[in-house]
Amino acid sequence: MIKIIDAIRTEMAKVVVGQEKMIDGLLIGLLCEGHILIEGIPGLAKTTTVKALAQTLGLDFKRVQFTPDLLPSDILGAEVYDPQNNQFKIKKGPIFTNLLLADEINRAPAKVQSALLEAMQERQVTLSDESFELASPFLVMATQNPIENEGVYPLPEAQLDRFMLKIKVGYNSAQEELLIARRIASKSAEPIRAVVNADMLYQLQEAVKAVHVDEEVERYMITLVRATREPETVGLESIQRYIQFGASPRVSIDMFKAVRAVAFLKGKQFVTPSDIASIVKDLMRHRIVLSYEAEAEGIDVDTLIEQIITAVPVP
């Protein structure tokens, strides 16, 4: 099974240099059917990576560029009048796909972002009085730019909570950047082949579910999630005032799925605490709501997660 993962990585490496963490995050989302939010400044190959992944999967892929004047119907679809038949008919929007790339999701207003709520959670869309089931697999991979304030709309908490992972993308190393520049300058990128189909993806997802999680490790994960709500239980009274809302139970669910995928990507059949630690920030950073005190004191959510992880005894 891991050979299929390697094949995906190889194909993606044809256009994406480095950014292993982002690729791993996307693969975890793919294996767990979790939606992914990618945050990074422009020019870090966020869109390119998602497109490359879609190409390697051979799945139906649609891209929506989120703009301030976008309407929910531009994504979901709408009931339109058919003058020939003299009746209304449903015109499905781009959300009816396997892989939806919501590019620069925070450029659209909250009402458009919220249009995705039902689709992302229940994997169905209701148009008029009719509900339509979305294709399987259905994944939303959204990108957003953190540095701009003008003309951007922060995602509502309920929407954020539906993203399994929020991956922060950093700069490439100097060597990688040199390779990117050479590759783009010489236009030498090879075409990407589709190496996975829907059946293979299903098999991969089943293999991930078979990864063993020890009971102690399960308890450890629950302790971690609960510690974000009640930090004093792990001796972190000092950070209590910085957290307005801790991680929701959806985090526990996603964590149970994601850590299996992390272990699977490492070629393991069981989950270790290090697998949890490697994904916990991506799982929690967008789901913990910080207080005004934290913002005033410049406390970063990642720092708080690190403190929690360090405070909880490792099984």
Binding site: P273, I276, V280, I309
Partner: peptide
């Protein structure tokens, strides 16, 4: 403990620690 170290290194998420994390696990 090795487990704590493994968790701590994983938390950092830097690829340079991957080999050591694997050996610790």
């Amino acid at each position: 403990t090795t487990k704590e170290l493994s968790v701590l290194l994983s938390l950092k998420g830097a690829p340079q620690y991957w080999e050591i994390i694997q050996m610790l696990d």
